[in-house]
Amino acid sequence: MIVYGTKINSDIEFPLDLSHETEVRYEVELSSNIPTELKNSIICGLYLYWTHDRKVYLYSDRVFEGSEVGQPWCYEVQDIVKFYWIGGERTIYYELDKKGDADLLGFWFIHLFLPLYMVLENMYDFLHAGAVEVDDKPIFFIAPSMGGKSTMTDYFIKQGHPLISDDKVPTFIKDGKFMAVGSHPYHRPYRKFEELGYRVDNFTTNFKPIHAFYELEGVEGDAKITIEEIKGFSKFDVLLPNYLYMFSWLKPQQLKYLSKMLNSIRVFHVKVPWDMERLAAMHEVICEHSRSIK
């Protein structure tokens, strides 16, 4: 299977349709044969976050001051699965816990573990956004939780626009351009715990330069639809909270990356009426605006 532009060679079959053919940048092994010395080297860690009604922990053999080649890691989803890996290597090991199964392994591996692993391994920088293509050009929808980005992404998909990402978008620089990478062909317009959602047939197949960012603001249903450009340092206020996994030791390089990104890609503020009947008008306005950007 291919997710996040990465071919995954696994010793377990996931109950998902990930048969799409997309561009590949990396290759990773997923194995249940965990080296004993790797498990025994994990001695300290921290509570990372609570999500999908589960506690998640991150462990290593040292206090977290960086991510180094040869450093052992463990990502634990309480009662479900533990993932192990060694910094700089492209093999990930898994161990199912008492409540774990192939469905839950697939969800946690694809939706939450891989983005964290890829950040720590310096493979991608991730943005929390929905992303689709308009005329083969990636546009990103950014909004706070329950702010409308999933609804907007869902509507664009249903109008025939290729999906890039439902929630977490990998990015990297190629030839001076910031590229968007397709995550996986599943979309969750209505958030359910530990589900990737429904499969989208029209999924992006290649890495493409990011065209524009659209920050969504919900307004009254009868309000006018407006799009205004955000300039200067205010662009940081939009994107910085949506930059995933800003560990303290990664912050300097991430801020530098984000600064370069915002110097080359335009950011716009969109007032989105809270009225499902006006989604067609929103779609038309955003598409017309995207096409006007040079």
Score class of each variant (00 low, 15 high):
M1P: 08
I2L: 06
Y4V: 04
T6M: 05
T6S: 08
K7D: 09
K7S: 10
S10K: 09
D11P: 01
I12E: 04
E13C: 10
S19K: 15
E23M: 09
V24I: 14
R25C: 11
E27A: 15
E29C: 09
L30K: 00
S32R: 14
P35E: 04
T36E: 14
T36L: 13
L38C: 01
N40E: 15
I43C: 13
G45V: 03
L48K: 13
L48Q: 13
K55T: 08
V56A: 03
Y57V: 05
L58N: 08
V63D: 13
V63P: 07
S67T: 14
E68G: 14
E68W: 10
V69M: 14
Q71F: 03
E76R: 13
V77G: 00
Q78W: 05
Q78D: 14
Q78G: 08
D79S: 15
D79V: 05
I86D: 02
I86F: 05
I86K: 12
G88Y: 06
E89C: 09
R90V: 09
T91Y: 03
Y93I: 08
D103N: 13
L105W: 03
F107S: 10
W108A: 09
L116D: 02
V119D: 01
L120D: 06
E121D: 10
E121G: 07
M123G: 01
M123Y: 01
A131Y: 07
K137W: 06
F141S: 00
I142P: 08
S150W: 01
T151E: 04
T153V: 11
K158C: 10
Q159V: 01
Q159H: 15
G160C: 01
P162M: 09
I164D: 07
S165C: 13
D167A: 12
K168C: 12
V169Q: 01
D175P: 02
D175Q: 14
K177T: 08
F178R: 06
V181Y: 05
S183T: 00
H187T: 00
H187D: 05
Y190A: 11
F193K: 12
E194M: 06
G197T: 06
Y198M: 03
R199S: 14
N202Q: 10
F203K: 00
N206K: 15
K208P: 00
P209I: 12
F213T: 02
L216A: 10
G218V: 15
V219E: 04
A223S: 15
I225D: 03
I225A: 05
T226D: 11
I227D: 00
E228N: 13
G232T: 10
F233N: 11
F236A: 03
L240G: 00
W249I: 06
L258V: 15
K260V: 09
M261W: 02
M261C: 12
M261Q: 08
M261G: 04
N263F: 15
V267Q: 00
V267A: 05
F268K: 00
P273Q: 12
P273A: 11
M276C: 09
R278M: 11
A281C: 11
E284G: 09
V285W: 02
H289A: 12
S290I: 07
R291P: 03
K294F: 10
